[in-house]
Amino acid sequence: MNKTFWKQFAIALALFLAGYFTFNGKLFAQTLEKPKVSIAVGGKNLFYYLPLTVAEQLGYFKDEGLQVEISDFAGGAKALQALVGGSADVVSGAYEHTINMQAKGQSITAFVLQGRAPQIVLAVSNKTMPNYKSIADLKGKKIGVTAPGSSTNMMANFVLAKGGLKPTDVSFIGVGTSAGALAAMRSGQIDAIANLDPVVTMLQQKNDVRVIADTRTLKDTNDVFGGPMPAATLYTTDAFLKKNPNTAQALTNAMVRALKWLQKAGPSDIIKVVPESYLLGDRALYIDAFMKVREAISPDGMIPDAGPKTALKTLQAFDPELASKNIDLAKTYTNELVKKANAKYK
Rank of each mutant, 00 (worst) to 15 (best):
L218I: 14
A14W: 06
R294C: 12
D223N: 14
L13R: 03
E336T: 10
G226S: 10
G149I: 02
V84I: 15
K141M: 06
V121K: 00
L218Y: 00
T98H: 04
A330D: 15
A232S: 14
N45G: 13
V256K: 00
G176H: 02
V338E: 06
V211K: 00
K36G: 13
P198K: 01
Y48A: 03
S92N: 08
F28D: 04
L27R: 00
Y333C: 05
N100T: 13
G176Y: 06
F318Q: 04
P148H: 01
F111D: 12
Q114R: 03
I11R: 04
S150K: 01
S125H: 00
Y20W: 13
Q263M: 13
G85I: 07
A343N: 07
P35E: 07
V41R: 00
E336G: 12
K260S: 09
Q249D: 09
K26N: 13
K139V: 03
T221L: 03
T314G: 04
L285Q: 06
H97Q: 13
H97T: 12
P198Q: 02
M255A: 11
N342R: 10
F318T: 02
Y286G: 08
S298F: 07
R216I: 15
S324V: 11
Y48M: 04
Y345H: 12
L58I: 05
K44R: 14
A317F: 03
G42E: 11
S187D: 12
F47N: 04
V112Q: 05
E96K: 03
V159W: 02
I173K: 03
L280H: 06
L251R: 00
T146S: 14
V37E: 07
I173V: 14
P304R: 00
T252A: 03
I11D: 08
